[in-house]
């Protein structure tokens, strides 16, 4: 199954994301987003971050999750590579392993301002999950 696909939007960029479980979808969304920022293959795993979130519903949880990651890289330069995620109800707990972006050696792609609610969707289709998120860049 395809994990992510980039969506073409005038001025901005979006992702269509798939996952066999909601946790896998959140993981694929995170990997997809970090790859919009830089080539994550070139990032060494040197740090761990813990994230804990609660939202009103799964869609909002996805936006909050991605915005938490935007915060981590925009503040600390942190790029996540390995995600251990558990979602219970509308609560998410994650442990992320990753490293710090180095403007000197790592490739600069897009600077994401935020994950938005614009055109946001997240649903279970047959046996898998599917979502669309658009980023403001």
């Amino acid at each position: 199954m395809k994990k992510i696909e980039q969506i073409d939007i005038s001025g901005d960029v979006g992702l269509r994301i798939w996952g066999k479980s909601i946790e896998e979808l959140f993981k694929n969304a995170a990997t997809g987003m970090f790859n919009l920022v830089t080539d994550t293959n070139k990032i060494k795993e040197t740090e761990q971050k813990e994230v804990s979130l609660e939202a009103d519903n799964h869609e909002n949880l996805l936006v909050q999750w991605l915005n938490e990651l935007v915060f981590l890289y925009d503040t600390y330069g942190f790029i996540g590579k390995v995600f251990r995620i558990s979602i219970q109800g509308n609560m998410l707990k994650a442990t992320i392993s990753g490293g710090i972006f180095d403007p000197g050696t790592n490739e600069s792609r897009l600077l994401i301002k935020a994950a938005t609610y614009h055109g946001l969707s997240l649903k279970k289709v047959a046996l898998h999950w599917e979502a669309t998120v658009i980023f403001d860049i």
């Binding site: 909002n60 935007v70 301002k113 609610y117």
Partner: peptide
């Protein structure tokens, strides 16, 4: 910069 982006992100939740 990131300061303003975060203020907007924070308040979109408040506004929802």
């Amino acid at each position: 910069r990131g300061f303003g982006h975060q203020v907007c992100t924070d308040f979109l939740e408040v506004m929802q």
